[in-house]
Simulated scan of single mutants.
Amino acid sequence: MPSRSAPADSTQLYKADSQWCDQMRKTRQKLAGICGQCMNRRVRIETIDGHSYEGVVVGADNTYLHLMTGDARFFGPYASNAILTLVLFELLVITLLI
């Protein structure tokens, strides 16, 4: 397997702050637990970018939330049960719909 080490003359352009990394890990764990409790339930998701989606939670792990939207406008007219994958750290609000 080839080595992925950086060349000796490379310059580091960005390194995340350790406190920010710790906060992101905690937030991701919290969201993963909440998403797991919402499995097979209808929710409304709002992202930090202002997008809003409604659907049924069909999967979740420590990185992604999988939402069955049933909304053909995202994936064309033949996708009646489209699955939308959202990144956990981009979620702003999760609302349980009854």
Rank of each mutant, 00 (worst) to 15 (best):
L31N: 07
N81Y: 06
L91E: 02
D9G: 03
N62F: 00
L92N: 15
T27G: 02
E46T: 15
I83Q: 10
D9E: 08
L65P: 00
E46C: 14
L67Q: 06
Q29I: 02
G50H: 05
D49L: 12
Y14V: 13
R44A: 15
Y14D: 05
Y64H: 11
D17M: 07
H66T: 07
L97P: 00
Y64D: 10
Q19D: 14
S80N: 08
E46L: 10
C38M: 15
A16W: 03
S18I: 10
T85W: 02
D71E: 12
V58R: 12
Q19L: 13
E90K: 12
L86P: 04
Q19Y: 08
P2N: 14
I83N: 12
L65R: 01
E46P: 07
A60T: 13
V87G: 03
G33C: 04
G70Y: 05
A6G: 03
G55L: 02
H51Y: 10
S80K: 14
D22Q: 14
T69D: 09
R25K: 12
I45M: 09
F75M: 11
V93F: 14
P77T: 06
D22E: 14
L92G: 08
R25I: 05
N40R: 08
I34S: 00
A60Y: 00
D71Y: 03
D22R: 13
W20L: 15
A6D: 10
A82V: 01
T69A: 12
Y14F: 15
F74G: 09
D61R: 00
A72H: 11
Y14P: 01
G36Y: 03
I45E: 05
V93S: 13
C21H: 06
T85Y: 03
R28G: 02
S80P: 00
L96G: 11
L91T: 03
T95P: 02
L97N: 01
V43E: 04
I45K: 07
Q37E: 10
H66Y: 10
Y64S: 08
N62M: 02
M24N: 04
F89N: 14
V58D: 02
G33H: 05
A82S: 11
V93I: 14
F89T: 12
R25P: 00
M1Q: 06
T11W: 03
Q37L: 05
P77K: 12
G36L: 04
H66R: 12
A79S: 14
R42F: 06
Q23Y: 03
Q19R: 13
A6K: 10
D61Q: 00
R73K: 14
